[in-house]
Nucleic acid binder design. Structure first.
Length: 223
DNA sequence: TCAAGGATCCGCT
DNA sequence: GCGGATCCTTGAA
């Protein structure tokens, strides 16, 4: 499915499961929000400058992970789609925890700690970390991965995960199709988020897809 | 080598 | 609703 056209792949990823299994246990989440970035023509895509060292994996075979850093702090997970040679990927924006929510919470905490430990602007960052630590306790399980940066924090995904074959069930990080008992959900679509630098038509093309009514859809955007 | 800016999250107003 | 934190990637010099 991932080898097919990117927009269809994006739709079919809604409802699929993201699985992380490592020494600390198993974390499973249901994907409820994605965005498609298609080809070198798409001026919102990282592929818009052509092939570079960072985005090379987008041009490779489908089913691989592409993890990049935005705003200097947050990792974002993408699934490469379309055949080798065509640059396209689906950004995983939000996931609904199914199993291992406690582990996700611990991973979120670990993410905060690594940043709180750094002191660049004279203790200010540590103060931010302390507050974030407190507020994490108030976050409901459903919202533990309700945003692209949070998905990576909750599943301990970082740039070294780039290139992982997400279709390999033996991989520490991989995808699984929706279970038979999962509730069917309507898929809605709308313009992508955070790409104000792109020009039309790319800026408003409705290539963001989400599961209607899902609690975990990022920041009040479930419409 | 350098400067600019970004597919975000959070707290506070 | 706004702004701060934070650092990697990019393209041009």
């Amino acid at each position: 499915v991932l080898a097919g056209d990117c927009l269809s792949a994006a739709r079919s990823l809604i409802g699929a499961r993201l699985v992380r299994s490592d020494g600390s246990g198993v974390r499973i989440g249901r994907i409820v929000e994605v965005e498609a970035y298609v080809g070198t023509d798409d001026l919102a895509s990282h592929a818009r400058f052509g092939r570079t060292a960072r985005n090379a994996v987008m041009f490779g075979p489908p089913g691989r992970a592409y993890v990049y850093l935005v705003y200097g702090m947050h990792n974002c997970l993408n699934v490469v789609t379309e055949p080798e040679g065509r640059a396209a990927a689906v950004l995983i924006r939000a996931v609904e925890p199914i199993e291992g929510a406690d582990l996700m919470r611990r991973a979120r905490l670990a993410w905060i700690e690594t940043r709180a430990g750094r002191t660049s602007t004279a203790g200010k960052t540590f103060a931010w970390g302390a507050r974030a630590r407190l507020s994490l306790g108030a976050v409901p399980d459903a919202a533990l991965a309700s945003g692209p940066g949070l998905v990576c924090a909750a599943f301990s995904i970082a740039r070294p995960d780039t290139g992982t074959d997400l279709c390999d069930p033996a991989a520490s990080l991989h995808l699984e199709t929706a279970a038979a008992g999962d509730p069917p959900r309507t898929i809605e679509s709308g313009p992508r988020v955070g790409i104000g630098y792109a020009t039309e038509p790319w800026r408003s093309v409705p290539w963001r897809f989400w599961a209607a009514g899902a609690d975990a859809v990022s920041g009040g955007r479930r419409r």
